[in-house]
Computed example of a mutant assay.
Amino acid sequence: MSVLVAVLVVVAVVAWACSSGGSGPERTSNAQTSPSVTPSADPLLAGLRTLAMGTASPSPTPTTTPKATPAARPKRPGEPCAEEDLVLSLQGGKEQIYSGGARPTFMVTLVNTGPVMCTADVGPRAMEIRITSGADRIWSTADCVSGAGSEVKQLQRGVPYVRSLEWDRRRSSADCRATPPAALPGTYVTTVRMGGLHSTKGVFHLR
């Protein structure tokens, strides 16, 4: 029994020695290899650092102030009328039937809507009344005009210039024939032109 107890005591001592020796270096190794804990970044410092690095909003682009355009000088009374100030219209002959030799009649009006009185050439060349049938040019006031063919009128604001016309149912041409032929029965269209201005079309019929 004494021998058995002595053996057990020796075994216990050896086991304690092994466990003590192994645990010491292991704790040392863990202490040496464990990474050092770095303090977490402060959000406030990070924000100030970002602001210092130039992340502030860019300066606004300077805007250019448009230059004021000088106002157009007012028109002087008696100057030529501007086309945008004129209203050209045609009345009469629309969808009418002329039979038995009756002559078509038309009435042209020209109105100045500008701020002051102006002048316009209403002569037969400048203000042309034209009658066509399809692609056929039948008659025009610009054919066989004697003299200068110009007629300058003063147009007061809002006061229409009126011109009446009666067509003799004969054709016209630029060569001024002595006896122009008569227009045939059919459908005809009349318009008035004055520079860039055009009236609405008037349609009538000859029988």
Rank of each mutant, 00 (worst) to 15 (best):
V9C: 13
V10F: 08
A12N: 10
V13E: 11
A15I: 09
W16R: 04
A17F: 14
A17L: 14
S20M: 10
G21C: 14
S23F: 08
P25E: 03
R27N: 06
N30Y: 08
N30V: 02
T33Y: 15
S34K: 11
P35G: 05
P35E: 01
S36C: 08
S36G: 14
S36A: 12
V37P: 08
P39H: 02
S40R: 08
A41P: 08
A41V: 07
D42C: 05
D42Y: 02
D42E: 01
L44K: 09
T50D: 13
A52D: 11
T55S: 11
S59W: 13
S59T: 14
T61S: 12
P62F: 07
P66T: 13
P66A: 11
K67W: 05
P70V: 15
A71T: 15
R73W: 08
R76F: 12
P77C: 06
P77S: 15
C81W: 01
E84C: 04
D85L: 07
L86R: 04
L86F: 09
S89D: 11
Q91T: 12
G92K: 04
G92I: 00
K94R: 13
E95F: 02
Q96G: 04
Q96L: 08
Q96I: 01
A102R: 14
A102Q: 09
P104R: 00
M107C: 04
V108C: 00
V108E: 01
T109Q: 12
T109Y: 05
L110E: 06
L110T: 09
N112M: 04
T113M: 03
P115G: 00
P115K: 05
V116N: 07
M117D: 10
C118M: 05
C118W: 03
D121W: 09
G123V: 03
R125Q: 03
E128G: 02
R130I: 05
T132R: 07
T132Y: 05
S133D: 11
A135F: 07
D136W: 02
D136A: 12
R137T: 10
I138E: 04
I138K: 01
I138H: 01
S140N: 03
S146G: 12
G147M: 07
G149E: 02
G149Q: 04
Q154R: 14
Q156V: 08
R157Y: 01
R157Q: 13
V159C: 03
Y161D: 04
V162C: 01
S164D: 12
E166I: 05
E166D: 00
D168I: 03
R169W: 01
R169I: 00
S173K: 04
S173G: 14
A174Q: 10
C176R: 04
T179P: 03
P180C: 09
P181R: 14
A182E: 15
L184D: 12
Y188I: 10
V192M: 02
M194E: 02
L197H: 10
L197K: 02
L197A: 03
T200E: 15
K201N: 12
K201D: 13
G202P: 00
H205S: 07
H205W: 08
L206I: 10
R207N: 07
